[in-house]
Protein backbone atom coordinates (compact mmCIF):
# COMPACT_ATOMS: atom_id res chain seq x y z
CA UNK A 1 0.00 0.00 0.00
CA UNK A 2 1.27 3.47 -0.84
CA UNK A 3 2.34 6.02 1.72
CA UNK A 4 -0.62 8.31 1.12
CA UNK A 5 -3.02 5.38 1.46
CA UNK A 6 -1.40 4.43 4.76
CA UNK A 7 -1.68 7.99 6.04
CA UNK A 8 -5.39 7.99 5.20
CA UNK A 9 -5.81 4.64 6.97
CA UNK A 10 -4.04 6.06 10.03
CA UNK A 11 -6.14 9.21 10.27
CA UNK A 12 -9.37 7.28 9.69
CA UNK A 13 -8.56 4.66 12.29
CA UNK A 14 -7.70 7.28 14.92
CA UNK A 15 -10.98 9.06 14.22
CA UNK A 16 -13.09 5.88 14.23
CA UNK A 17 -11.25 4.59 17.30
CA UNK A 18 -11.81 7.83 19.17
CA UNK A 19 -15.51 7.80 18.39
CA UNK A 20 -16.00 4.14 19.32
CA UNK A 21 -13.92 4.14 22.45
CA UNK A 22 -15.43 7.21 24.00
CA UNK A 23 -18.67 5.20 24.19
CA UNK A 24 -17.15 2.58 26.48
CA UNK A 25 -18.39 2.98 30.08
CA UNK A 26 -15.96 3.45 32.97
CA UNK A 27 -17.04 0.02 34.20
CA UNK A 28 -15.13 -1.56 31.33
CA UNK A 29 -12.10 0.72 31.26
CA UNK A 30 -9.65 -1.81 32.67
CA UNK A 31 -10.63 -4.58 30.22
CA UNK A 32 -10.72 -1.98 27.45
CA UNK A 33 -7.22 -0.92 28.29
CA UNK A 34 -5.94 -4.45 28.47
CA UNK A 35 -7.75 -5.34 25.24
CA UNK A 36 -6.26 -2.35 23.45
CA UNK A 37 -2.92 -3.28 24.91
CA UNK A 38 -3.31 -6.74 23.40
CA UNK A 39 -4.25 -5.19 20.08
CA UNK A 40 -1.06 -3.11 20.10
CA UNK A 41 0.78 -6.44 20.05
CA UNK A 42 -0.39 -6.73 16.44
CA UNK A 43 3.03 -5.24 15.75
CA UNK A 44 3.75 -8.98 15.63
CA UNK A 45 2.92 -8.73 11.91
CA UNK A 46 5.77 -6.33 11.30
CA UNK A 47 8.05 -8.40 13.52
CA UNK A 48 7.35 -11.50 11.41
CA UNK A 49 8.03 -9.68 8.14
CA UNK A 50 11.16 -7.93 9.37
CA UNK A 51 12.59 -11.09 10.95
CA UNK A 52 12.08 -13.07 7.78
CA UNK A 53 13.79 -10.32 5.78
CA UNK A 54 16.79 -10.07 8.11
CA UNK A 55 19.89 -11.72 6.70
CA UNK A 56 22.56 -11.03 9.32
CA UNK A 57 22.50 -13.52 12.19
CA UNK A 58 22.50 -10.83 14.89
CA UNK A 59 19.52 -9.07 13.35
CA UNK A 60 17.69 -12.36 13.02
CA UNK A 61 18.02 -12.95 16.74
CA UNK A 62 16.76 -9.43 17.42
CA UNK A 63 13.80 -10.34 15.25
CA UNK A 64 13.17 -13.51 17.23
CA UNK A 65 13.08 -11.40 20.40
CA UNK A 66 10.63 -9.01 18.72
CA UNK A 67 8.35 -11.88 17.65
CA UNK A 68 8.52 -13.33 21.16
CA UNK A 69 7.67 -10.01 22.85
CA UNK A 70 4.81 -9.30 20.50
CA UNK A 71 3.32 -12.80 20.80
CA UNK A 72 3.40 -12.67 24.59
CA UNK A 73 1.71 -9.26 24.35
CA UNK A 74 -1.05 -10.43 22.00
CA UNK A 75 -1.81 -13.83 23.53
CA UNK A 76 -1.41 -12.78 27.16
CA UNK A 77 -3.34 -9.58 26.59
CA UNK A 78 -6.36 -11.09 24.87
CA UNK A 79 -6.60 -14.06 27.25
CA UNK A 80 -6.40 -11.94 30.37
CA UNK A 81 -8.98 -9.54 28.94
CA UNK A 82 -11.26 -12.48 28.29
CA UNK A 83 -10.79 -13.69 31.85
CA UNK A 84 -11.58 -10.25 33.20
CA UNK A 85 -14.65 -9.71 31.05
CA UNK A 86 -16.15 -13.03 32.02
CA UNK A 87 -16.16 -11.86 35.66
CA UNK A 88 -18.63 -9.06 35.05
CA UNK A 89 -21.99 -10.22 36.29
CA UNK A 90 -25.39 -8.70 36.05
CA UNK A 91 -27.83 -8.23 38.88
CA UNK A 92 -30.71 -9.57 36.85
CA UNK A 93 -29.06 -12.84 35.93
CA UNK A 94 -27.71 -13.69 39.37
CA UNK A 95 -30.44 -12.64 41.76
CA UNK A 96 -33.95 -12.78 40.42
CA UNK A 97 -36.70 -10.92 42.24
CA UNK A 98 -34.31 -9.08 44.41
CA UNK A 99 -35.97 -5.69 44.33
CA UNK A 100 -39.24 -7.25 45.42
CA UNK A 101 -37.71 -9.03 48.38
CA UNK A 102 -35.99 -5.84 49.37
CA UNK A 103 -39.16 -3.84 49.65
CA UNK A 104 -40.83 -6.49 51.78
CA UNK A 105 -37.98 -6.66 54.24
CA UNK A 106 -37.98 -2.90 54.29
CA UNK A 107 -41.61 -2.99 55.32
CA UNK A 108 -41.04 -5.69 57.91
CA UNK A 109 -38.34 -3.66 59.53
CA UNK A 110 -40.63 -0.82 60.34
CA UNK A 111 -42.13 -1.24 63.81
Amino acid sequence: MGLVGLLIVFVLSVAVGYKLLSEVPVLLHTPLMSGMNALSGITLLSALVATAAATALGLRWLGVVAVLFATVNVVGGFLVTDRMLRMFRSDRAGRPGKTASMSTTEAEKRP
Binding site: V9, F10, G17, L20, T43
Partner: peptide, 18 residues
Protein backbone atom coordinates in the same frame (compact mmCIF):
# COMPACT_ATOMS: atom_id res chain seq x y z
CA UNK B 1 4.43 2.49 8.12
CA UNK B 2 7.94 1.06 8.11
CA UNK B 3 6.83 -2.29 6.69
CA UNK B 4 3.87 -0.78 4.75
CA UNK B 5 1.17 -2.82 6.45
CA UNK B 6 -2.29 -1.15 6.50
CA UNK B 7 -3.67 -3.53 9.14
CA UNK B 8 -0.91 -2.61 11.57
CA UNK B 9 -1.25 1.11 10.84
CA UNK B 10 -4.99 0.99 11.53
CA UNK B 11 -4.78 -1.14 14.69
CA UNK B 12 -2.01 1.07 16.05
CA UNK B 13 -4.07 4.16 15.35
CA UNK B 14 -7.07 2.73 17.22
CA UNK B 15 -4.94 1.82 20.23
CA UNK B 16 -3.37 5.27 20.17
CA UNK B 17 -6.83 6.86 20.25
CA UNK B 18 -7.96 4.55 23.06
Amino acid sequence: FAVRDPLLVAAGGIVGAA
